[in-house]
């Protein structure tokens, strides 16, 4: 992924900037300019919304064969999380023993390193999930 594209996505990666349809109320993440249900009716009516960062585990898997940049973290948990606003986000679930993860577990987002373009390249930061006691 290009540095420029990752940079444009910073508001969503750092602060969970989403969009909400002003007609039907549906929330989109990443944000969209047009609602997938209301189509043309939603044009000009999409509002920016910051997700609260809280949600619950919808599904998860434990990754043992990681891409090289996640080598140091394995085994790690990749979770699909239903946010309290209704949208689904997928990211790593960290600071947890894979054995302790459960469907329905409450989690919240935190900012972590999500990758880098090698030792001399840009470091990318984004949201990951941690248990929300």
């Amino acid at each position: 992924m290009s540095t420029a594209r990752l940079w444009r996505e910073n508001p969503s990666r750092y602060n969970l900037a989403a969009s909400k349809c002003g007609v039907c109320g549906k929330v989109f993440f990443p944000p969209r300019n047009v609602c997938s249900t209301c189509h043309r009716k939603s044009i000009g009516k999409m509002e920016q919304l910051l997700l609260s960062g809280e949600g619950e585990v919808y599904s998860y898997s434990v990754v043992h064969e990681a891409p090289s940049q996640f080598e140091m973290l394995k085994p790690y948990v990749l979770a699909m999380v239903r946010m309290d606003e209704g949208v689904m986000l997928t990211s790593q679930l960290i600071d947890v023993d894979p054995k302790e993860v459960d469907i329905g577990m409450r989690v919240k987002t935190t900012l972590r390193k999500v990758g880098e373009d090698g030792p001399a390249g840009v470091i990318y930061y984004g949201y990951k999930f941690t248990p929300n006691p």
Binding site: L73, D95, T110, L111, R112, K113, I123, Y125, K128
Partner: peptide, 11 residues
Amino acid sequence: SPDEDVITISV
């Protein structure tokens, strides 16, 4: 953790 640094701690 490997995904933490001074930036994430400061944030």
